[in-house]
Design a binder for these strands. Sequence first.
DNA 1: CGTCTATTTGAATGTACTCAAAAGCGGTGG
DNA 2: CCACCGCTTTTGAGTACATTCAAATAGACG
Lengths: 194, 194
Amino acid sequence: MEIELILKYISRHIDLSDKEKSILVEHVKVRDYLKGQFIVQQGDVCKYESYVISGCAKTFFIDQEGNEHVVMFAIENWWTADLGSFITQQPADYNVQCLEKTKVAQFSHTSLEQLYAQIPKLERFFRIIIQNAFVASQKRIVRNLSLTAKERYLIFREQYPDIEQRVPQYLIASYLGITKQFLSKIRAELIMEN
Amino acid sequence: MEIELILKYISRHIDLSDKEKSILVEHVKVRDYLKGQFIVQQGDVCKYESYVISGCAKTFFIDQEGNEHVVMFAIENWWTADLGSFITQQPADYNVQCLEKTKVAQFSHTSLEQLYAQIPKLERFFRIIIQNAFVASQKRIVRNLSLTAKERYLIFREQYPDIEQRVPQYLIASYLGITKQFLSKIRAELIMEN
DNA sequence: CGTCTATTTGAATGTACTCAAAAGCGGTGG
DNA sequence: CCACCGCTTTTGAGTACATTCAAATAGACG
């Protein structure tokens, strides 16, 4: 069953007894989204932390000029949410929208607080997950500051080959912080070079 | 005593009994650094998570071309470390260097693991701290992608007025991802505008 | 006062952007 | 089967934001 997947994933970081597993399962909602549906909408409070079982979603926001900026992608085994909104229960800055038919396991804010109380080890689990996410986020900042668009694209390609193949190019450009036209030119250059 | 400060800080997020406080204190090392000294050096394993009691430090790295890039600053009540290195106990990517005479409270990797075992609530504490750091990090990515240098500088100024006054301008330029000359020109423009 | 470091200013250049238009590509219906 | 539609990607010309290099000022400290 698909819920086994998330238990297995959590068990990579902490040990769970059968009882704890069943408590967990009670608090998880598995939900299916169609391509184009929103898991989180800018302005709404982010109700869930969502673990992607299958499919793919983008986190993005629209700036003052109306331009879309992709903050991150989430595929299988990734977490997605507007964490800032989830933590504070204030309106979200970001949208999370499915790019494919997507199946997620969701924890609500109250469920998660109850789970933390009943299974304190989960604090550890999420600490580790977020720690890793933070380290990755810092690395991305560093790359954005020190590398050219071309170098960033090459790193993205080798780091997320799965994502590159599943997502339209203009969204990757947005994630990299460049225009779709410029990414196209970078790609043309790369082809020339070989 | 200065160690009270960190206990007070931790108590903002979790309740600690007197016994727990004393366990904590046993595992914390307070250490003084002079201006210019390194808390972490690129290539070494990052041994401590350091909580800044007083003073100021920069996290930076040197790229292939030999240019310095400031990743973050840490002042009073901030944590600093190469977290990636600390977690994995692999060589650090970053340097942490004091910009002033700096007093920190340090947790070693083994101390922290022992503390997690003895005071599981600390998992919660660090989860919360890192969660907030992650959210801030994501926001910075977004700003770097969607705003001009001038806008980013204005936000930095209002967000970290303390840091701006204590740190040389060329380091702020580096943090913002621009050259020192360009920051100088932005400042000239801003003065014109008023 | 002189030296060292930090900041400012200016000119030439480069990287990435905007706007506009063309080409490619997948699906749908005649 | 091909023609057309909508959407994505490519190409080109002109522009803007930020950089490099060089030199001049300004500040800090002994």
